[in-house]
Computed example of a mutant assay.
Amino acid sequence: MLRTPLGRVRLMLWIQGIAYLAILFAHQPLQAAGMTQTVMVIGNIYRISFLLLLVALIYGKTALNWSLRRPLFIMFASFIPFGLIIMDWIWVKKWTGDSAAEQRAAS
């Protein structure tokens, strides 16, 4: 997965998607329970993963010759719960022509 530029971008999509879900489903209940140290750790992980996603999108735009519209579309999908995971399953594979048949043919 990390051998190609697309694989690196897809990995960051998954990391950011999981970090966003952690913010939604773990951060808020922990904050209500008063666990401030844990809340700070989860928040920092989310912030760092978002910045790394932006770097990965810039890298993907240059390495994969994407138009500006695709990274912006991915960035805005990062604010929707499960948005990046759905984005990876549907759009990124469609944009690159990545399908199971092509992967089997390449093997």
Rank of each mutant, 00 (worst) to 15 (best):
W14G: 02
V41F: 11
P5F: 01
R47W: 14
L57H: 05
T38R: 13
M40T: 14
V55C: 12
G17R: 00
W89E: 10
G17F: 00
I80S: 02
P71S: 05
G60N: 12
K94L: 01
S49P: 06
F76S: 15
D98K: 08
R104E: 13
V9D: 03
L54T: 10
Y20S: 05
L68R: 14
W91K: 05
Q28G: 09
F25C: 07
L51Y: 11
Q31W: 12
G83A: 11
A56L: 15
Y59L: 11
S49I: 06
S49C: 04
V39R: 04
K94V: 00
M40R: 13
N44T: 05
P5I: 01
G83M: 05
L2M: 12
S107I: 02
M35F: 12
I85P: 01
D88V: 11
W14Y: 13
K61N: 09
F25Q: 02
L64E: 02
A19N: 02
W95Y: 13
S107K: 13
I90D: 05
V92E: 11
P71W: 02
Y59M: 09
L21E: 12
L68A: 15
Q28K: 11
V92D: 09
Q103V: 15
A101C: 00
L57R: 00
P5N: 01
I80T: 07
Y46M: 12
I18A: 15
A33L: 15
L13P: 03
I15H: 00
G17K: 05
A77S: 15
L51I: 03
A63V: 00
S67P: 13
R3L: 10
V9H: 03
P5A: 08
T4G: 10
I74L: 15
T62I: 15
A26Q: 09
V9T: 05
G7M: 09
V41D: 01
I90C: 08
S107F: 13
Q103G: 04
A56K: 08
D88F: 08
I15R: 04
L11V: 09
D88P: 08
N65A: 05
Q103K: 09
M75G: 00
L53D: 00
A22C: 06
L2V: 14
W95C: 14
N65C: 06
K61L: 04
G97H: 07
L57Q: 01
V41M: 11
Q103I: 12
L51T: 02
I15Q: 06
W95K: 10
W89N: 07
G43P: 02
I42N: 03
R47N: 14
L53H: 01
I85E: 08
I74Q: 07
M1T: 04
A106S: 08
I80M: 12
I15F: 09
I90K: 10
N44G: 15
W95A: 09
F79D: 04
N44A: 01
L52Y: 15
E102Y: 05
L54C: 14
K94A: 07
L6Y: 01
W14K: 14
E102N: 13
T36W: 12
R70I: 14
Q28V: 15
